[in-house]
Computed example of a mutant assay.
Amino acid sequence: MLPDGYSDVPAGKLAAVVTCLEMQAPPPGRKDPEQLGITLDRIERPDVAWYRDLYSRIGTEWLWASRLALAEGDLAAILHHPDVEVYAVMKDGRAEGLLELDFREEGTCELAFFGLTPATIGNGTGRWLMNRAISQAWSRQGHAPIQRFWVHTCTLDSAQALGFYIRSGFTPVKRQIEVFDDPRLTGVLPETAAPTVPVIRP
């Protein structure tokens, strides 16, 4: 347990406050914004390079790095697992959003990754995508229903993320502190990423 007061974070590391949220039943339906020219496509056995490109275009601003640091074989093993579902938000023939649902824990679905590129932000696409995430998590065909749908977000994510999840029907249930190597210093992300988060060199 961390003591009350300030705790130093070593140089070269980042720290984030992580909030875990869950729902134990499908929430009431929310308005489904019309999305002309946008589709959600299931990507079977996604190519690792394709996935990393989309992941980077969405997440570099928020210092998403965990999937970029994985070895190609380890990442492929996750993405190709029969209980992991990857979807792409398609616009003008290009993937501009990512939805990843992880059913590997029995009775549970984790909203593992959820995000949009700048090309699809601000037009209700996030709500549209969340409506589909919730529907798919709770009505997965050919499998027993889940009892828990959960997600986590942190203070490095968009300031709107936590409120969006709560409005979507998730309830905060746990808070954690995550300390990890700054991916801009390990070479996983460019040093210019997330300029509002200063780099502190060891």
Score class of each variant (00 low, 15 high):
1 M>K: 03
3 P>F: 03
5 G>P: 08
7 S>Y: 03
8 D>G: 00
9 V>I: 04
10 P>H: 05
10 P>S: 01
11 A>R: 02
11 A>S: 04
12 G>A: 08
15 A>S: 06
17 V>A: 08
19 T>P: 09
19 T>A: 10
20 C>W: 13
20 C>Q: 13
23 M>S: 06
24 Q>Y: 05
24 Q>W: 09
24 Q>N: 15
25 A>E: 14
25 A>W: 14
27 P>T: 15
27 P>K: 13
28 P>F: 07
29 G>V: 15
29 G>E: 15
29 G>T: 13
30 R>A: 15
31 K>P: 11
32 D>E: 12
33 P>M: 01
34 E>Y: 09
36 L>F: 12
37 G>L: 10
38 I>K: 08
39 T>S: 10
39 T>G: 13
41 D>M: 15
43 I>K: 14
45 R>W: 11
46 P>I: 10
46 P>K: 15
52 R>Y: 03
53 D>W: 11
57 R>M: 11
58 I>W: 10
59 G>Q: 05
60 T>M: 08
60 T>I: 13
61 E>S: 14
62 W>Q: 02
65 A>W: 06
66 S>V: 06
66 S>R: 04
68 L>I: 06
69 A>W: 05
70 L>S: 09
71 A>E: 15
72 E>G: 00
74 D>C: 07
75 L>W: 03
76 A>D: 03
80 H>L: 02
80 H>T: 01
81 H>S: 13
81 H>W: 14
86 V>Q: 11
87 Y>W: 07
89 V>K: 02
90 M>W: 05
92 D>H: 12
92 D>G: 13
94 R>A: 09
95 A>M: 11
97 G>V: 12
99 L>H: 02
100 E>C: 12
101 L>G: 12
101 L>F: 08
101 L>R: 07
102 D>A: 07
103 F>K: 12
105 E>R: 14
105 E>F: 09
106 E>H: 13
109 C>Q: 07
110 E>A: 04
118 P>C: 00
119 A>N: 14
121 I>K: 15
122 G>I: 06
122 G>C: 08
123 N>P: 05
123 N>W: 11
124 G>A: 12
128 W>D: 06
129 L>R: 02
130 M>L: 15
134 I>P: 01
135 S>D: 15
135 S>A: 15
135 S>V: 04
137 A>N: 03
138 W>E: 02
140 R>C: 09
141 Q>M: 04
143 H>V: 14
144 A>N: 13
144 A>K: 14
146 I>R: 09
147 Q>Y: 11
148 R>Y: 00
149 F>E: 03
150 W>D: 06
151 V>A: 00
153 T>N: 00
154 C>I: 00
155 T>P: 04
156 L>D: 00
156 L>C: 03
157 D>F: 05
158 S>K: 11
158 S>L: 09
158 S>H: 12
159 A>W: 05
163 G>R: 04
167 R>P: 04
167 R>S: 10
168 S>F: 04
168 S>E: 06
169 G>I: 02
170 F>Q: 02
170 F>N: 06
176 Q>E: 15
176 Q>G: 09
178 E>N: 02
178 E>M: 12
182 D>Q: 14
184 R>D: 10
184 R>F: 08
185 L>D: 05
186 T>I: 01
188 V>A: 14
189 L>R: 05
194 A>T: 08
197 V>W: 04
199 V>D: 10
199 V>A: 09
200 I>W: 11
200 I>E: 12
202 P>K: 04
